[in-house]
Write a protein that binds this DNA or RNA. Sequence first.
DNA 1: GATGAATGAGGATTCATTCAT
DNA 2: TATGAATGAATCCTCATTCAT
Lengths: 203, 203, 203, 203
Amino acid sequence: MTPRTGRAPAKNGGTRRGELLGIAAQLFATRGYSQTTVRDIADEAGILSGSLYHHFASKEDMLREILKEFMDDLLAAFAGIAGKDGTPREQFDALVYTAFATIHERPFAVALYQNESAVVGSLADFGFVGKTSLKIEKLWLGVLQAGRETGEFRDDLEVSLVYRFIRDTVWSSVRWYNPRGKLRHDVVAEQYLAMLYGGLLAG
Amino acid sequence: MTPRTGRAPAKNGGTRRGELLGIAAQLFATRGYSQTTVRDIADEAGILSGSLYHHFASKEDMLREILKEFMDDLLAAFAGIAGKDGTPREQFDALVYTAFATIHERPFAVALYQNESAVVGSLADFGFVGKTSLKIEKLWLGVLQAGRETGEFRDDLEVSLVYRFIRDTVWSSVRWYNPRGKLRHDVVAEQYLAMLYGGLLAG
Amino acid sequence: MTPRTGRAPAKNGGTRRGELLGIAAQLFATRGYSQTTVRDIADEAGILSGSLYHHFASKEDMLREILKEFMDDLLAAFAGIAGKDGTPREQFDALVYTAFATIHERPFAVALYQNESAVVGSLADFGFVGKTSLKIEKLWLGVLQAGRETGEFRDDLEVSLVYRFIRDTVWSSVRWYNPRGKLRHDVVAEQYLAMLYGGLLAG
Amino acid sequence: MTPRTGRAPAKNGGTRRGELLGIAAQLFATRGYSQTTVRDIADEAGILSGSLYHHFASKEDMLREILKEFMDDLLAAFAGIAGKDGTPREQFDALVYTAFATIHERPFAVALYQNESAVVGSLADFGFVGKTSLKIEKLWLGVLQAGRETGEFRDDLEVSLVYRFIRDTVWSSVRWYNPRGKLRHDVVAEQYLAMLYGGLLAG
DNA sequence: GATGAATGAGGATTCATTCAT
DNA sequence: TATGAATGAATCCTCATTCAT
């Protein structure tokens, strides 16, 4: 549950390929995909830029692989929550905590997802991004809807707007959240839920 | 209060320069600054890329000018609100309504501000972005703080976290808000405030 | 009717574009398309390789343009002959003389046509090569067929084989024919026709 | 006397080396030498590109070996014919039949010889190509000359032009001849000789 | 204001080749 | 024999920018 620091690989079994993907993810996230050169990645890895093509077919390929793995994991995590027992509110709690934990654990992948979704829209073979996003949206909307039906959540708000507000707030925090800072991700989640559930007004 | 459509200039007095800036803003916002080529802008304007340099010293210059004008306007608008009479909650309402209205009226500039702030951080002569952002932050924090002191707003939440949550939600909506859609910006603002003030829970 | 020497342009109205195409044609013909680098062409033109892209979209584009112009001209020349009055044998004479004259006048384009047809087959937007070749084949076959029917030409040979034999002989001569040598193209044509008409045997 | 099909080796005694040369010959002939990558060859052979270097010192080496073997065989075959008894016309018949048979049996090597001779001219250690070609030319010219002296062949044509015309026609047919088609190589040879000997004119 | 030609630096990608294992 | 990782040079192409006209 501790964030990767430096160039430690994410969850790739020590393979060279996975190691390179980790480096690429960090650079893509930090500088932006199109501002990151293949040479930047190679330099960071200590090899020549041409050598990267022994492992990947293209720069785009690296981005695709990083995003694919991330989105598959994310969907699986959310689906696991929505599939378990629990009241809608409990499930919603878990979704939000998981999202903030994901930001903590995989900040580069999240940043990529946040920042490069637009770029990716125009590229071929990135259809999975939109599709998985939609599945995730349906999952969250299902939980919100269920909460309205049980009477836990208010029903006088546009649920799709509510979803967008929440989604944007949660994922945007990747921009300012510091995995190595004093503010822990579960505290952020807790504060967000406190504000979201109770509202900003006193009394 | 109607959004610009097509390539109509924002508030530039019909000058060629302003017209070109409008085109650039739209392209920068749509494709991203670094994915937009000087030729793209020139093509859209119906001239050759070299000719742009009669109007601007560089591509970066265009971005700077667009952002500068936008941020100055934005700060002025917010400062006007905070300087007027009214309870903190009334002022806060006005800030949020103004932000959503700005997204409606100047979607490209807002998108640029949202998406390119990171890029811009490393460039010279873009210090005003960070500085103005800070001033805006202080304004909003002042209003939130005042609301806590009058007892209108809850005081059991980290105010700086609250600010970030709100800021991110509001500005992120530029990604999905459609100025020409059915959902009007004041409705979005209203829904957001309803959720924010009253909380998500029923009862 | 004298062949181009050095880097003189073919028939391009003194334009820079045409001048560059002439240089490219010569190099493509001499070294082969894929062995000729964009830099080779630029060097020969006295500019930087990137500057070529001000005039052409790609290296492939240059090849296409060269071949297109050549094949259109060639078809027009042959069609003119087949459309005029004259016995089949007179027309056939003219076709052969024209072919050898073309080799003399535009040796680079002919060499390209001879050598790069295979490469070109797999590339997009080069369909015109095959199509025009087919039209030319039909023209020549028409004349040969007409000659058989008037009794001028033998009718005990496979006409399509005869066409291939002739075509291959004529165009292959681009490999050894020297536009600036002693052996003039009309002499070559004359000798070829003498052998073809009369046969190799004495008596 | 049947053509190789698929990737069966030519006359290499089942060795791995010979097998690889066969694959290389086919690819070089089909795509062109410089368009064929070492990886293409390795892929086709089911190994990694680096592994090819256990068998050959370089890509150029493969080409050299293929051409060397081919040209030596070809010269030997032609020399055998010219060394045997028979009238010049009988010898000439045999040369032509042998050439077409060679196209049938070793189409890839012939295609390489036809297409890559130019490339090869500039490379070191490929001098044998020009030298052997010259020996072959002398052989054929000898037979043609002998035929003129015996009165079998016409003597009013430039003999070196006649040779070039014949050589180009024969070897060019590798481009369209299909070893597995209906048209057999001996029929092609027969038709060619009929046209060449008797001429195109009726009567 | 605009054109058209060119620059020069860099960017992704290819590929023959090497070499430790 | 073969692998897998890497090299290094070259290739096509892009693009912000300059400048004479």
